[in-house]
């Protein structure tokens, strides 16, 4: 089943066209990787899916994005609701300058959960799901800024998990982390796909090959090729894809 479908999606910043007529089907409970050289529009594509591009003045889209069959950009779409159901993890770990506990509780509180017992339960569960609980259970009240980069990123994942989204968008989640931190996040992603649909944008082709089930190759705003990860990395149909994954450019 396809969780998110884009139909002839184009994105413009002012006059500049960032994405060109992208047709993409993101299958549910799988990890889909979007790869491509810097500036090809990977992150912009991701940010169309939770409408974070709305924050950029003069950005507009053409075409459609369907989320469970419903048009994300329809006039009656509740953006807040969309962002609650489609979570996001950013390139640079960006925990709030609050305590570990409050970082996770924030998303719950703004969504109306006030009960302290319930908050604590969800905080604990989210931290366990993101594999951070054992490391931080005694310092829930210390500032998130004191954690290491890898821990901060897992905290951000826990923060996204806490409000139980259906999809998690990951925008180069490991690019600011060391190999050990990267390994933990990748392990976590594979575990999480049982419950969530994950879309990861990555610069790192080995990472895409390691974790993803499907891969799309984006080049200069166009989707060159999309298919099973195995196939893309072994017998790519397109010359451009082959050149990119074999490291001849990018």
């Amino acid at each position: 089943m396809d969780k998110i479908v884009t139909k002839a999606l184009s994105l413009f910043y002012g006059e500049k066209r960032i994405l060109k007529e992208i047709d993409l089907k993101i299958p549910q409970n799988n990890i889909t990787a979007i790869i491509g050289p810097s500036g090809c529009g990977k992150s912009s594509l991701l940010r169309c899916m939770n409408r974070l591009n709305d924050l950029i003045p003069e950005s507009r889209i053409e075409g459609q994005i369907l989320f469970d069959g419903k048009d994300l950009y329809a006039e009656n779409t509740d953006v807040v609701e969309i962002r609650r159901r489609i979570g996001m993890v950013f390139q640079r770990p960006n925990p709030f300058p609050k305590s570990v506990y409050d970082n996770i509780a924030y998303g719950l509180r703004i969504n109306g959960i006030k009960n302290k017992k319930k908050l604590s339960e969800i905080v604990e569960k989210s931290l366990k799901d993101s594999g951070l609980w054992e490391e931080v259970k005694h310092q829930l009240n210390t500032s998130a800024m004191e954690l290491s980069g890898g821990q901060q990123q897992r905290l951000c994942i826990a923060r996204a998990l806490a409000i139980e989204p259906e999809v998690i968008l990951m925008d180069e989640p490991c690019s600011a982390l060391d190999p050990a931190g990267t390994f933990k996040i990748e392990e976590l992603m594979i575990k999480l796909k049982q419950q969530y649909t994950i879309i990861i944008v990555t610069h790192n082709m080995q990472q895409a090959a390691r974790v993803s089930d499907f891969t799309g190759f984006l080049y200069l705003g166009q989707l060159i090729e999309f298919g099973h990860t195995n196939q893309i990395f072994t017998i790519p149909e397109h010359k451009l894809t082959e050149n990119y994954i074999t490291g001849r450019f990018g």
Partner: peptide, 23 residues
């Protein structure tokens, strides 16, 4: 980054200003 993280969790502009940016 803070604002984006907050918006991505489904916070409105107002909530984000009061509960993330100002603190």
């Amino acid at each position: 980054d803070y604002n984006e993280a907050s918006y991505a969790l489904g916070a409105s502009r107002w909530t984000t200003l009061i509960r993330v940016t100002l603190p």
